[in-house]
């Protein structure tokens, strides 16, 4: 009972700061996902291209990103980029998350593209479409639709992963929790509350995603 009371107190004392921080979390997640989609599309195209060189570049990128911890990538990028150009922590973090996501999204797109029935491409070839035409008009639209559920998952993962940019002082949710806890000396309650923010965001998004998937099924 006592715990619940303190949690509530902490919640009431922190929510102005947390709501602001939540906005930053959502922004950095959105930017990371947009960048990730651009990178992902680029590298997915490289992977399915017929050029060995492009394939290799994409493979190296994906292997490195998937094989190293995100927090290392964030630090590497932050200290790497900021020696070249002046960049805020927010943008350094967003770019790092974007590059990180790009590798996973590339695999999502590649899987979706290769998952389209071979017959679709054969039918378009037999109608006289070039490879590019059949990709653009037949394969990509179907693959994109199939990518949306896994992309939604990736969004959820990114939302949670974005907490790691606290390390480069981006004032997002988790950084805010650290700051609050250092001031109110109620670490347990503060981290419980911040966990709640993430949980609610994820649940809202999961619900939207499920709604969309159901809609897809109905359309089919």
């Amino acid at each position: 009972m006592e715990l619940l009371k303190t949690i509530f107190e902490v919640f009431m004392n922190t929510y102005p700061g947390f709501l602001e921080a939540m906005l930053i979390t959502l922004q950095i997640t959105a930017v990371a996902l947009i960048l990730g989609t651009v990178f992902g599309l680029m590298f997915a195209l490289m992977k399915i291209s017929r050029s060995r060189i492009l394939q290799t570049i994409a493979n190296v990128y994906i292997t490195i990103i998937r094989g190293t911890p995100l927090i290392v990538q964030i630090m590497f990028l932050y200290f790497g980029i900021t020696t070249l150009v002046v960049l805020s922590g927010f943008w350094a973090g967003a770019i790092a998350l974007g590059i990180h996501n790009g590798a996973y999204i590339a695999e999502i797109f590649r899987g979706a593209i290769q998952g389209i029935d071979k017959g679709q491409r054969e039918a378009s070839s037999s109608l006289g479409m070039t490879r590019a035409q059949s990709m653009r008009r037949i394969v990509f639209p179907q693959a994109l639709k199939r990518s949306i559920p896994p992309l939604g998952n990736q969004f959820i993962i990114t939302l949670k992963d974005s907490s790691l940019v606290y390390i480069i002082s981006v004032p997002e949710l988790f950084a805010m929790a650290n700051r609050e806890a250092a001031q109110n000396f109620k670490s347990l309650e503060t981290y419980l509350v911040v966990g709640g923010y993430y949980l609610v965001l994820v649940m809202i998004f999961t619900y939207l995603l499920r709604w969309y998937e159901n809609k897809l099924d109905v359309d089919k």
Partner: peptide
């Protein structure tokens, strides 16, 4: 290939297009 039409066992219609769109796609694009 455009001069030699092919009808497949499993139809291979384009599921993201309506029936009419399926038919007019190649004339428009190709």
């Amino acid at each position: 290939r455009a001069e030699v039409g092919m009808v497949f066992q499993h139809f291979n219609l384009f599921p993201h297009m309506t029936v009419l769109e399926n038919v007019i796609e190649a004339p428009i694009i190709v």
